[in-house]
Nucleic acid binder design. Structure first.
Lengths: 249, 249
DNA sequence: CCATCTGGTGCTATTATAGCACCAGACCCA
DNA sequence: TGGGTCTGGTGCTATAATAGCACCAGATGG
């Protein structure tokens, strides 16, 4: 009997009969997609706190579906069906397509700054767009790195929208002083509707409740922060507008 | 007892104990991501040939995870967690990040033509990149439309890599004449390693076995087809090279 | 060679699941 | 307005899927 790990992300009530296999499997799939490289089934089980046989079976199922692939080193890597899932979920999400024109416009308005759009996965920010100044726009897409959420304005904004008990659970094991600082930062972000981190990155939420974070990074002290914030908010608003159901495909 | 619908996409053996809930749920998730708009649970059940209670439960589970969202019209639409899944799977897939620079280069080499990169989902091509001539590159990403695979060089190439029995099953109900034409086209594509459709779109496979398709479209008769094919193959090779495990993150 | 790890399976007790029957609500038509 | 038909969703329970223990063979390192 597995401990239930479902987290109610949107407030949607749990159905009368949730599907445990689906929940466990999606967790494994996300862990695979987020891993720095091929990962063994026992390794993944330890990371997820799941029984290893279960993970082995779920990974085997993902492999049979092509979403995972066995390597010669007996580990699991991304499989060809992950390309399909990426394409399908990107299409279904519509966030990137809605955001791209506005991100490019913002970038043009703010030369010399990095512009980023990211979402939150556990304790990481996953960037859909991350454009340092001077770099080709194309490089900005499908940015590869995960970034610690607690060290990112985007991460803090998205964490701020979570229940503090959930955040505490997520950051279990973090030294108390760091956790206190983080929670204080989240309270401030929730209050202000923006987050500044390290004096170098300023972010706002996209959507209510927040579905993503939009940020600029660089030498912010040389800039009029009210102007920056206004631009960020306007851009975030346009992106959110583009995601409205009335404009649904 | 559900009829087993697992399709072995990569040839990976089924595990001793595959997880049925995961398989069914991923099918629902993909159907949701591919739908033109919000979809009801019974509607989806009919489309997938699944019992409606099962689909209702799977969709409820996806909703609890935030991957789906209930609409006021009592249907399911994409939920906020789908942005996260899109970002994670795009990261894990690496196809778009590996391909983008090469797609841009190809586009620059072939002004006046559309350049496209797509994957196959059921009977549809899902484009990760679709750049008509003259359009801003950014618009090319996260192209929204699905396209009938049998009417696309990319689709035909990817179908050509499937067992003909699987293709027949997929196109069950198609008039015999159309099916025969399609199968003949697939045989030719498999033999030649390229596909031409409607005289307007020429495609090659990316990867062996093919994980995606790369194509150019437009007035191809004005072009040296050997040169086009060479460029396509070189670009496809570079993309595939970028996906190699030795270069794994 | 031995110890320890790995991915994976068989087996079976247990529990998650499937589907039937039902509910309440929405919608449409006469 | 009422009736019919659709919808999303639940309770219930028989059944089949699942979990986890014990085990296997292979890989790795000292």
């Amino acid at each position: 009997m597995p401990k239930t790990k479902a987290r109610n992300r949107t407030g949607a009530p749990r159905p009368a009969q949730p599907n445990e296999g689906l929940m466990g499997g999606l967790e494994c799939l996300q862990a695979l997609a987020g891993a720095p490289g091929p990962v063994g089934s026992r390794e993944m089980a330890r990371a997820l706190g799941m029984e290893h046989t279960r993970v082995n079976r779920l990974m085997g199922t993902l492999a049979a579906l092509g979403l995972a692939e066995r390597t010669p080193e007996r580990k699991y890597a991304a499989g060809p069906a992950l390309h399909v899932l990426a394409a399908m979920s990107l299409r279904g999400s519509r966030l990137l397509s809605a955001a791209l024109p506005h991100l490019e416009a913002l970038r043009a308005e703010l030369p010399g700054l990095t512009v980023a759009l990211g979402v939150l996965w556990r304790r990481q920010v996953v960037y859909l767009y991350f454009a340092p100044p001077g770099e080709d726009s194309m490089v900005a897409i499908a940015h590869r790195n995960l970034y610690p959420a607690e060290k990112s304005s985007i991460g803090r904004l998205l964490l701020a929208a979570q229940a503090r008990s959930d955040v505490r659970k997520l950051y279990a094991g973090t030294p108390a002083a760091e956790l206190d600082e983080l929670l204080a930062g989240l309270d401030a972000a929730a209050r202000d509707g923006w987050a500044l981190y390290g004096g170098q990155t300023l972010g706002v939420a996209v959507g209510t409740p927040p579905v993503a974070g939009l940020a600029v990074a660089g030498k912010l002290d040389e800039r009029d922060s009210d102007d920056l914030l206004r631009r960020l908010r306007e851009t975030a608003g346009r992106i959110a507008q583009g995601l409205r159901p009335s404009m649904q495909r």
